[in-house]
């Protein structure tokens, strides 16, 4: 935070603490997503198990942040930038929690996969995942820097993720056609791809919050859209 410190030091501490917890929670999500992708693309069960077990940590951050936000509102009545810090922390933590959940879901499906995956599919999955991971990292950087332009960059990058998701979906559909006997694996892969895309969406939500936090106004206009989804799910 770049503002001058509060006259009341304990208030200052509470806001700093909230800020630190968002960053810790964000890092935990980055780690979960990274491990979940590595686990599925390299078939590493240990990593998958770790993601599943560590999700509890992320849930606890969410609960803690919610409690801190409620306390701040009840006891400090934050105004202006402090109000935005407080309210966006609540919203960001709920998007981050979803990112944790979706990473865990990818890992659960990873443990259920039977066959090795074709190289084209792994490559496509790696491409979309790498892009989402980069978005998440940029988002957390934007939060640290309180940078609206960085948040806008992330927001605009969501389009590319939609495109890469579709390319990955095409590979999964090809896999389903070629491996009719292995419908289970194919279905898991469909969900995994969709989950990666949704992690991208939650990341974009966080970026929107950061923009509001810094600017005090909402990003205008519709979120940039890539190609129409091949398999649509709820947004």
């Amino acid at each position: 935070m770049t503002e001058a410190p509060h006259t009341v030091k304990s208030y200052e501490e509470e806001l700093k603490n909230l800020n630190a917890n968002i960053i810790k929670m964000g890092s935990a999500c980055e780690e979960a997503l990274g491990k979940a992708i590595q686990a599925i693309t390299t078939r590493n069960s240990d990593f998958a198990e770790a993601v599943i077990n560590d999700d509890e940590k992320i849930d606890k951050y969410e609960a803690l942040i919610e409690q801190q936000v409620v306390n701040l509102i009840a006891l400090r009545q934050p105004m202006a930038i402090d109000l935005r810090e407080t309210v966006t922390a609540l919203k960001m933590s709920s998007d981050l929690e979803r990112i944790g959940d979706l990473s865990k879901n990818i890992s659960k499906r990873t443990l259920l996969l039977n066959e090795n995956l074709p190289k084209n599919l792994v490559d496509a999955l790696n491409r979309v995942s790498a892009s989402v991971q980069k978005q998440l990292k940029s988002t957390l950087d934007a939060y640290l820097e309180r940078s609206a332009p960085m948040a806008v960059n992330v927001w605009e990058g969501d389009e590319q993720i939609d495109d890469l998701t579709n390319l990955c979906m095409q590979e999964v559909i090809k896999y389903l056609k070629e491996n009719e006997k292995n419908l289970d694996d194919g279905t898991h892969l469909l969900f995994v791809t969709k989950n990666v895309e949704r992690i991208g969406d939650h990341t974009t939500n966080v970026a929107e919050q950061i923009y509001y936090l810094v600017k005090g106004e909402y990003l205008e206009g519709d979120r940039p859209k890539g190609t129409e989804p091949i398999v649509s799910g709820e947004k």
């Binding site: 503002e3 001058a4 410190p5 509060h6 006259t7 208030y11 202006a80 109000l83 935005r84 005090g216």
Partner: peptide, 19 residues
């Protein structure tokens, strides 16, 4: 003024960061 004031002095005052 209370959600997003333009002036830093205003913000410092209403958020309790004054002097």
């Amino acid at each position: 003024i209370f959600k997003n004031p333009d002036n830093t002095k205003t913000q410092d005052y209403i958020t309790g960061r004054f002097g």
